[in-house]
């Protein structure tokens, strides 16, 4: 007996990604993160675990920080998605947060960085002047194995205070 565990169904979706509307037919089982990385080649969004624990895949879905490994691509149908590739302007001008990460040495290997930036972007959009405690809480879903977080927290707080010290 042959058991097929691959869903036979797929669905057409329309998602606004970093300002552009994307229409694609996707397998129903495809995670949003794999849709972004494999189908759209937006490889800035990373995968670091298989349990929704690490936050490397964090993107903004309708302004909310979401782990893109934890929702299906079809669930993003009709939504507006923002990834790390959508932060800097087309001419390469970094956001204040990206610049602050550079200024504060808030990254080493850079693998967690896109997820950190998206979680922190969501925080700064709802709270432009976060305290250290606010930042720690907002980044609780994002693991970093290189920095020990100190410089990341400093970088996010600095944005709310008008720039890195």
């Amino acid at each position: 007996m042959t058991v097929s565990t691959t869903p036979a169904t797929s669905r057409a979706i329309s998602v606004e990604i970093n300002g552009d509307t994307v229409e694609r037919e996707v397998p129903a089982s495809r995670l949003l993160v794999h849709f972004l990385r494999d189908d759209l080649d937006l490889t800035g969004t990373h995968v670091g675990c298989d349990t929704g624990s690490c936050g490397a895949c964090t993107v903004l879905v309708d302004g909310l920080a979401v782990k893109s490994c934890s929702i299906l691509a079809v669930q993003a149908d009709g939504a507006s998605v923002r990834t790390v590739e959508g932060l800097a302007s087309d001419d390469g001008e970094l956001t204040a947060l990206q610049q602050s990460f550079k200024d504060c040495h808030a990254l080493q290997c850079g693998y967690c960085t896109p997820g950190m930036l998206m979680s922190a972007t969501a925080l700064l959009e709802r709270n432009p002047h976060p305290s250290e405690a606010d930042v720690k809480l907002a980044l609780q879903g994002n693991i970093c194995r290189c920095t020990g977080y100190w410089n990341i927290i400093e970088a996010v707080v600095a944005v709310g205070q008008g720039g890195a010290a």
Binding site: F101, D103, L117
Partner: peptide, 23 residues
Amino acid sequence: VSVPRKEDNRLVQGQGVFFDDIK
């Protein structure tokens, strides 16, 4: 001197190339 890192510009923009990014 703690000069800015050359690596950072690509990494804060999701432009690093990790092995899983290669197709």
